[in-house]
Structure formats: structure tokens, C-alpha cells
Design a protein around this nucleic acid. Structure first.
Lengths: 251, 251
DNA sequence: CGTTACATTGATTCGGGTCAAATGGAGTGG
DNA sequence: CCACTCCATTTGACCCGAATCAATGTAACG
């Protein structure tokens, strides 16, 4: 959701780096840093949304709870992401630290004031929201029409690409969250997540680098398995009558 | 590339100067109305996003296509909704008319200008985006953790409530979209949608009012079946160790 | 070491997908 | 008005991918 997987994200990153001091981020620069221990909540769904947060360190999970103890994780915001923008009075989701987290807090009222006073704040907030929206849409595609293998591949690929973008040269991804977190993010169970990781290891697409660390051996294959690219499989021609496949089985 | 029917929208500047302090909706008021036939596209995913639309009449579907002809419908915007706000240069999804549709078009540049010139436009746009975000989050919950019956009930309940809100007194909902549309929105197949409707009819929760019209006989039950409310089922006490159920079967 | 929490693996079940056929309207033409 | 076509929808039989149930394995920590 935050570190969105869409093209739009990079564009905003570029914009932010072009105006690193004058923009939205600068508002947080002077704020005191608060720290959270793993598992500690930052706020709950439905809380009166008084603040917006800039993540200076670590990873959180945003989640919603429904009946019978079911949980859905909607995003894993990380360093550089803004938190709490999308709301209407109350927070739409709960937020908890996964790792040790450092955040800077800004009153919503202050942000609102800044949006009025400065011409470049509002567009940045607007852009951030659009990125979140793009990520949410991708997630709807994932949850609505992708198989377990495609979901996990999509997830891993997103982390892989983000790491590659952010200077890292080694194709290593660190999953700082638990299997349960991943399962709740991908709409699967921990068992299925585990099995699917094993399957990808077996295919040689991934290899175990360390605990909670995976090495991406075959990024291309991972991308294909993610199922996003219109892999121009045979005859993309007459789709009119043809019945569409919904959940292509994994091999 | 190109959108449905191309019209020029130079009037916007004039309108802005005439109503510098008017609301978001007022920006569209003077724009010419364009009509779409059922099935006609308004724009495609990835199109250069030059316009924002205000729906004056009818219902559309917003969708994304992925490999193998799979489709996900992310929303069914209707009268009064704004369309095309959430993007970054290109539209995030395709938009097609389901019914006959009437829209008013506004250049994005004009909207951006209005947001700068008028103090009350930006907050309204911001709010609209937050509403979209909230809807997207609910959809993620639905797709990630709800059973077929819960998905359909949630869907129907949303329509039921919207109709009740908007003055309608009869508990009738009109599903102007096809089963395939509903299936692609709920992450199911047409067969499952059909079977689930039949099941709800059998339970007496719904009854057939007419073609594409359903009467909600038991709103309460429907709400329960939607599975949102934390139906305080027995012992909500010690959830710590207990394993959470993911897909409660329907009876 | 034992304890505890998390992760993997296996056996089995089941909800929903797939395949196939029947039913039902809406529109057309005689 | 009826026969006929064209599709959308419903219904039935069967299957499969992922959930569930159940151990087992493993890493962190007192």
C-alpha cells in the first residue's frame, strides 16, 4: 500500500528527492522521534485520528479485524512512508510495530494548515494518497484473482524491487514479519505460505540466505510467477467468446 | 489512448473565475454532459489521465485486467461519484459504462488550478480520496477473509443501505450489472454468485422482485451474514493462544 | 537443557472452481 | 402470436487448491 508496486511510486520518489527540504517531509524534520517496541501499537482502528506519522525507522503492519478473530493486513509501511493520511476523522486501520520502530508525529491540524499555507504540500499529500490507492488496487487484484503461488511471488517481487531500487545490490530480501503476518496480508494461511515458499525454494527461484532472509535466484522467473505481466500466452486473440480462467493452477 | 468521446473543456477557466469559492461539484456544473451506451468505455487503464469525471447518471465499472483474461472489478461508481481522481499521470483502471451513463468532464489541470485558487476544493478532493481508500480497505477485507456468502451479503447490504439512505423507502435493490460483473467484483465465479443468491432466496433473506431486482426481506439477517459486525459469539475472551478461524463455513 | 513461540511438513477435508447441460428471457422475423 | 435464436443465468456432477487438523522440527531464551 505504501511502498506501492506501481510505476507511480517511483515518480513520487523522484519528486520528493527533487524537493527534499521544502516539502512535506520537512514538516516532520523537527519533530521529536518516538520509538516503538516490536508488537507495540501506534493506534487502533477507529481511534480519533489526531496525528499523521512519518516512519523514520522500522516496519509496521496496518490491519483490520473482523468477526471470529479474522485479521487482514492491508499494508506493511516502512521507512519513508507516511502513516495515517487516509482517514476521515478516525483511523481506518490499526497500526502496530513489527520491528523496532521510530516515528515522527505531526498533528493533523498542523498538516492541514501547511497544506493551505504552502503550495507544494497539498500536491505531495495528494500524490501520497494516490500511491496508496494504487497499491490498494493491486492488492485487490492479488486477493481477488491470484493463486497462492502468484500471491507470494507478487509479494516477494515487490520487496525484491524495492530493495534493488534503494541502492541495495544483493538480491536479498528480509522478511521481518512473521508467517502469520504474511498470511494475513496475502489472504492465505501460514501453512500455505510455508508450503509455497518451500515450493519456490524447490524450483530454485529462491534460496535461504539466513533466518528471515531469502535470496532471489531467478528474478525473471519470480516475475513470471507473479502473474501480473500479460504473459502473452498462446492466442491472446479471440477472447470474446472464450471463457476466462480464474485461478490458473500452479505446476 | 483516447477516451470514449473527446470534448474540449476550455470553459473551466471561465467557471473558475466565476465561482472561485464554490464547491468541488460546482466545478462540473457548467460542463457539457456526455453520454455513454452500455458497455462503452470511458477510458482504459494506463491512458494518459487528462480528465476527471462527475457521474450525472448511471453506473460504471472500474476494472483491471491481468494475464489469462482474468478481470478484477474494483468499484461500481454511480451517480454523484467522482471518477479518475486517484491516479498519477495515468489512470489506474479502465472504466466502462454498465447502464446508459451521463458524465461531465473536467481537465485535471483545471482541477489542480481550482485546488490552488480555492480553499475548499482541496479538502473535498482529499475527502473523496479518503472515502475511496476506505472502500478499498473494506474490499481487501472482503477479498482476503470472507466466504462466498459473506461476500455476497456484504455486497447486497451495501446497495441496500445506499438505497435506504437516498430516500428510497422500498427495500428493493437493483443489480444493474451482470453476474459476471458481480463475480469479478467479489472474487468469485458466476456459478458461485448464482448459487449463493439462490441460497439466500432459500433462507428467505431475499426474494425476487423482478428481473435484476431483489427485495431484502430480512436486513438484520443479511447484516449478520455479511460477517462484519463482531458478532460476539461465545467466549470472545481468550483469543491469545486460540487459533483463529479463517473462513467460517456457511450453514 | 526445558520452555515457548514460530515454522515446516503430512494427511485429510471442504468451499468454491470447473465442466457441462438445462432453463429462461429478450429480441427478431414470419 | 408464436417459433426461433442468442445470451445470461441457473443447476448439477465432479474436481482441485487451499484450509484444516495434527504432529514434528527448530530457533530464541530463561
Amino acid at each position: 500500500m505504501f511502498s506501492g508496486s506501481s510505476q507511480q511510486t517511483q515518480k513520487s520518489a523522484t519528486i520528493l528527492s527533487m524537493h527534499p527540504r521544502s516539502g512535506l517531509k520537512a514538516l516532520f524534520a523537527g519533530q521529536p522521534v518516538e520509538h516503538l517496541r516490536p508488537g507495540q501499537p501506534l493506534f487502533f482502528e477507529g481511534d480519533d485520528a489526531r496525528h499523521v506519522f512519518d516512519i523514520a525507522e522500522g516496519t509496521l503492519r496496518l490491519f483490520k479485524i473482523i468477526g471470529n478473530g479474522r485479521r487482514v493486513i492491508t499494508a506493511f509501511p516502512q521507512v519513508g512512508d507516511l502513516l495515517g493520511l487516509s482517514l476521515r476523522g478516525a483511523y481506518l486501520y490499526g497500526a502496530e510495530a513489527i520491528t523496532t520502530v521510530a516515528v515522527r508525529r505531526l498533528a493533523r491540524a498542523a498538516l492541514g494548515q501547511a497544506m493551505i499555507n504552502s503550495d507544494d504540500i497539498a500536491p505531495q499529500v495528494f500524490g501520497q494518497l494516490c500511491d496508496e490507492m494504487a497499491a490498494a488496487q493491486d492488492q485487490m487484484v492479488l486477493l481477488g484473482r491470484k493463486s497462492a503461488e502468484e500471491r507470494l511471488s507478487t509479494f516477494l517481487l515487490k520487496y525484491y524491487r524495492r530493495n534493488m531500487m534503494s541502492g541495495q545490490c544483493a538480491p536479498i530480501i528480509e522478511l521481518c514479519m512473521s508467517r502469520q503476518d504474511i498470511a494475513d496480508y496475502l489472504g492465505l494461511t501460514i501453512e500455505t505460505v510455508s508450503r509455497t515458499v518451500t515450493k519456490l525454494l524447490g524450483k530454485g527461484v529462491l534460496s535461504q540466505a539466513a533466518s528471515h532472509m531469502l535470496k532471489v535466484e531467478k528474478p525473471r522467473v519470480l516475475a513470471q510467477l507473479a502473474g501480473d505481466g500479460d504473459e502473452y500466452e498462446n492466442s491472446w486473440q479471440e477472447m470474446s467468446t472464450q471463457r476466462a480462467r480464474r485461478h490458473p493452477g500452479a505446476t
